Computed example of a mutant assay.
Amino acid sequence: MTFETDTGTLLAQSQQRARRLRRQQGGTDWTLFLAGAGLILWGVVAGAGAMRYNWQWYRIPGYFWRKIDGEIVLGPFIKGLLVTLDITFWGALLAFGIGLCVALLRLSRSWAGHALASAYLEIIRNTPLLVQMYLFYFVLSPILGIPRFWTGVLTLAVFEASFISEILRGGILSVPRAQWEAASALGLRGYATYRKVVLPQAVPLMLPPLTSAVVNLVKSSAIVSTIAIFDLTNEGRTIIADTFMTFEVWLTVAAIYLVLTISLSAIAALLDRRARKFTER
C-alpha cells in the first residue's frame, strides 16, 4: 500500500513538473515572439518616420468592402484573396495527384517509371519557380492553349508536387517492413494493405510536412502575379499604383497571408491529433 502511494505521489509530481516546464517554455516562446514582432514593428515605424511617410490607415478598410446603395461591394483585397484561395485549392489538388503518381513510380519496380520520376524531381527541384512559370506561360501555354489562370495553377502544382511526392514516399517507407509482412500473412493485398495497415500508420507522420507543403503553396501563389493574374499580391500592387500607400498595403497583404497560413497550420494540427488518436485505438 505504501509502495503504491509513493508511486502515485512520484507520478503526480512528475506530471506537475512537466506541466510547469511546458508553461515556462510557452512563456519563453511568447516573449521571444512578442520581442521579435515589436522589433520589426519598430523598424517599420522608424523607417517610415525617417522618410516622413504619411500614414493613411483609415483608407485601408475601404479596399476590403464598401457599402454602396445599401449593397456590400467586395473590394480588391477580398477579390484578390478569393483568387488566391482558388489557385491554392486547385493547385493543392493537382499537386497531391501528381505527387502521388510520382511517389508510386519511385516505389515501383519499373526501371523506366523510376527513371522518369527521378528525372522529374531533379529538374523541377533544381530550377527556380519563376523560370518554370515563364516557361509554362510563354512556351507551353501558347502551344497547348492553356488559359492564364490554369497556367499558374499547373506551374505551382508541378513545382509543389516534387516535394509532396517525397513526403508521401517517405511516409510509406517509414512503416516497418514487419507490418507489410504481417499484412501479407493475413492475406491482405494491394489496396487493402495500404488502407488498413500502411496509411493509418503513415498519415500521422505525413500530416506535418504536408501542411508545410500547402502553406508553401499559399505563399508561392503570389508568383502568379508575374503573368497578370489578379491574386492578392497583384491587387495590392494595383492599389499602390493608384494610392502610393506602400507601407499600409504591403503590411495588410502580409497580414492576410499570415492569417491564412496560421489557420491552415491550426487545422492541420487538429487533424494530426485526431489521426494519432485514431491510430492509438
Rank of each mutant, 00 (worst) to 15 (best):
P208S: 05
A192S: 05
V214H: 09
F163A: 10
L173W: 05
P204K: 10
G152S: 10
L205S: 07
L217M: 12
R169S: 06
Y191V: 12
R169A: 12
G190C: 02
S141Y: 00
L188F: 05
G145V: 07
I167D: 11
L156F: 08
P204M: 06
L156W: 12
E166F: 11
P208K: 13
I143L: 04
A185R: 02
V203M: 15
Q179H: 15
S174Q: 14
I146H: 04
L173S: 15
A185P: 06
Q179M: 05
L199Q: 05
R177V: 13
W150F: 05
S220W: 00
V214Y: 08
I143H: 01
V218S: 09
L186T: 04
A161P: 05
W180G: 00
I172H: 13
F163Q: 03
T151N: 06
I146F: 03
A183Q: 03
G171C: 06
V175K: 10
L217A: 08
G171T: 03
T193G: 04
F159Q: 09
P147W: 07
L154V: 13
S165K: 13
G152K: 14
P204T: 08
V215G: 11
V158A: 13
L168Y: 09
R148W: 00
L154C: 08
K219W: 03
V218C: 08
A157H: 06
L173P: 11
I167T: 15
V203K: 08
A183F: 01
V218D: 11
P204S: 11
Q179W: 09
A192F: 02
A178S: 15
P176K: 12
L207I: 15
S141G: 05
V153D: 02
L207S: 14
P209H: 01
T151I: 03
L205T: 10
L210C: 07
S141E: 01
L188A: 02
S220H: 08
V158N: 03
P142I: 00
